[in-house]
Structure formats: structure tokens, C-alpha cells
Amino acid sequence: MPYKSLLAILCFVVLAGCSDPQAAGKFAMPPMPVEVAQAKVQKVTDRFDGVGTIEATDAITVVSEINAAVVSLPFQEGGYVKKYDLIAQLDDGQLAAEVARDEAVVAQNRANFERMKVLVEQKASATKDLDDATASLKIAEANLALSKAKFEKTRIRAPFSGLIGARKISVGTFLRTGDAITELANIDEIRVIFSMPERFLLQLKQGTEVTVSSAVNPELEVKGRVIVIEPIVDESTRNARVVARVANPGQKFRPGMSANISVVLSERANAITIPNEAIFASGNQSFVFVVKSDSTVARTALTLGIRLSDVVEVLQGLEVGANVVEAGHQKLFEGAKVMPISTEKK
């Protein structure tokens, strides 16, 4: 029978009793109709949900390290390049000449060193002359290594595999050190950056599984692992920065996109739960009214655990199967007589 119908009948009975003068002295408060629910065992999951930002695992702006003109840009804009693929060829004429010059100087100094070595062995020259020849050879070799290093910088190669962006310059452009050529990003895997409140940090650790889904396409969902938990909590927000590494099949996630984050912090398979509506508070303590076998209620203090959208975990204070008042407890008191109405679905 609906709750409102029962309440109407009881009110009628009370009024009828009060209208009888002979019954006035024998009046007793009728049982209060209340909805009850049973404490059940179920699996509960303590979960953190938030929003993060996607970053590339590796991302750079490709720049020139020397002053030189662009000879060629042999890459397809927006395409995929492999590690060591040529991105830009710069004019190497002057640097090639410097390499040839320094190679000749090294050859000359090496020949002089060998000659001095023989003369010193024959005691036809002073040891100091050999020391000078040795130093000159080392200086020449260092200059050659430097000119070769500069020459190599005319060939700008991809330091890792990834997607390459649009050209920022054209063939013939004279580049100066630090001028940008294009962007390169590795998004085979992605990093997801998000903030987590301090109250969750003790339950979080490196390696914890993270589920990442697209804010624009909920069907796109991938899993990864926490790799970094920043050691310093932001004192203004009381949040810590967390980084997760996530696979990116099909490269559907792109750097800069937002993502929904879900982290399971703990699970208990055999938790005792009751409906959220059954809980009421007095000060800092949570209580429920437990319906006893004689249909009276007992005000019972509880220790609560994980709170879900519809139920709350009870850590202490209730046994499995206990009947608690879910609705109608506002006017109850210790020992009050009730008429339980089960809310369990048949």
C-alpha cells in the first residue's frame, strides 16, 4: 500500500479515537509508518573522476643551430617521419670548405709530429720540439672536429619518430640560430596531466591504472598508468599534479585536447551498504534508526566508508540484514513504535 494512503488511514484512526470522550483517557500513539531498507553486501569502489589535458610524450620545435640558407625541406607536412629522417638541408658550401681546410692542417701537423718523433729518438732534436708538435696536432684535430660538427648541423634530422607539422619557412630562407622550421610530436603514446585533491593522494601510487576517455567522444576510451605524482601540493588549491602515460591507438588523442580521467583508488567486494537517505547526522556523528524485532527503533551510531551515488558503505555499527529506516525518520525518537514499509523491489 502506498505510503501516503497508510498515513491517511492512520490519521483517520487517530481523529476517530480523539472524538470518543470515553476513549480519550486510553489514547496511545499509533505506530509511525516508515519506509525501511535492508543492509546489504555489495562491491564498492572508491573512484576519483576528473578532467585532464593531453600532452605528447615527446614534442619539440625543430630549429636551426647555425646561420645558413635553406636548400631543401624534404618532408611532407602533417606526415609521419622516422627517427633520423632528414627534415631540412642547409647550405653547407662554406662549412664543407672549412672541413677540407682543417683536414689539410691535421695532415700537415701529423706529418710534422711523426718527423719530430723520429728526430727526438735519434737525439737530433730537443724533446720540447716534439711537445710543440704534439700540441699543434691536438689543436688541429680539435679544430677539425669542430668544423665537422658545424657541417653536420647543415643536415637537420628528426631526433625521434612522430608526426611533423607545417613548414614555418621556405626554401631559400636564411635562418639564424634558433629560428623555427616546424613542429615534431610523438603521439604513439600520450601523457595526461591532471590535478588530484590532497585527500586522495595517500591512496594513489605510481603504477595505478588510469582510464582516459575523450570529452567529445565518450566511446573513445584507453587505459594507462600513473608515472609521476608531484611531491609538492599547491598550497592555494591543495591539489597535486599527476601525470599518466597512456597508449594512443590510431593517434586519436591529440596534444592540447581535454580528457576525462577515472582512477580506481580502492575496492571492497564484501562491503555492507545502506541507502544514503537512511543516514542523518548529529554534530560530527552519523546515525540511522534500526528497526528491531518488536517494531521499535534504536538510534545507532555508524562509522561510514565510501559514499556512492545511491548507497554508503558502513564500516562499523550494522550487521548484514539489519533493517534501517530509509524515509520517515525525521520525527522518530529512541524506542518509537513504527510500521515498517519495505522499499525492496520484488
Score class of each variant (00 low, 15 high):
23 A>H: 13
39 A>K: 13
224 G>P: 04
123 K>V: 03
298 A>C: 04
105 V>E: 13
49 D>L: 13
219 E>Y: 08
152 E>A: 05
177 T>K: 11
243 V>C: 06
268 R>W: 05
210 V>W: 01
24 A>H: 12
335 G>A: 06
86 L>T: 11
35 E>V: 13
284 N>Y: 06
116 M>L: 10
20 D>H: 04
182 T>M: 01
241 R>Q: 09
119 L>Y: 03
289 F>P: 11
83 K>E: 03
212 V>Y: 01
300 T>G: 11
273 T>V: 14
271 A>Q: 00
260 N>I: 03
274 I>Y: 00
156 I>K: 03
259 A>G: 05
324 V>Q: 00
264 V>Y: 03
193 I>C: 04
9 I>G: 06
28 A>L: 10
228 V>W: 13
108 Q>W: 09
144 L>V: 11
124 A>Q: 15
100 A>S: 12
324 V>I: 02
88 A>Y: 01
338 V>R: 01
282 S>C: 07
288 V>D: 06
279 I>Y: 08
40 K>I: 15
102 D>P: 08
11 C>R: 11
5 S>K: 12
8 A>Y: 05
195 S>W: 06
232 I>Y: 13
322 A>M: 08
20 D>T: 06
103 E>C: 10
143 N>K: 09
178 G>V: 12
225 R>G: 05
49 D>V: 15
253 F>T: 00
102 D>A: 14
325 V>Q: 02
72 S>R: 14
63 V>L: 10
168 K>E: 03
200 F>R: 06
150 K>G: 03
11 C>I: 11
12 F>H: 13
306 I>A: 14
107 A>K: 06
50 G>E: 01
141 E>F: 05
231 P>D: 07
75 F>Y: 09
223 K>S: 06
143 N>V: 09
201 L>H: 07
342 S>E: 10
64 S>D: 01
344 E>I: 09
67 N>Q: 14
81 V>F: 00
261 I>P: 00
170 S>L: 12
310 D>S: 07
196 M>Y: 02
177 T>Y: 14
102 D>F: 12
47 R>Q: 14
70 V>H: 06
282 S>H: 15
291 V>R: 02
250 G>D: 01
81 V>C: 00
286 S>D: 09
